[in-house]
Amino acid sequence: MERLAVGDESALEELYERWSRPLLSFLYGMCHDRALCEDLMQGVFLKVWRAAPRYRPLAKFSTWLFQIARNHWLNEREKKMRRIRPVSLDGSGPDDDGPRLGRSVAGDGPTPDEHAVSTELGEHIAAAVQRLPEKLRDVWVLGAAQGLPYKEVAAILAIPVGTVKSRMFQAVRTLREELEPYVGSG
């Protein structure tokens, strides 16, 4: 980060190499839209670049990074929702310049590389995660998919560790309910 702070672009490339996949995975868990994820990820790295001179290691770098990513996603989503409010939810309204909710927020269907998982469960779980209530999705994507410790998830989301634990349990319960036919009975 010190190299980044003085404008060393190679430091950014190293950071990108290390964190682009986790970030992309996190953002994909949030919005389930491959193209939007790439845009959001760029925005996050841009913010990191701009904020680097002011970075102070008060917490783990990953905590800081995922906080930025989550705030960026929330802000962009809010802007997008405001911009596209007049557009029909089912996409049946008149065409206009703005993107449609169905495409921009819920995704425009899986691309070939989104079919990386061959199991039946794998084909359904990304959509099920997307349908989780936001609070549960945040915790599940950070704690289960990213494997961040509960303590770090709590710091990123600014909630107590006990709440993370409780939401993680609810997320499992909800996903299990949703994916019952694929989860089986061991």
Partner: peptide
């Protein structure tokens, strides 16, 4: 399954 599905 989530890790696999979200790995891009």
């Amino acid at each position: 399954a989530t890790r696999s599905a979200l790995a891009l």
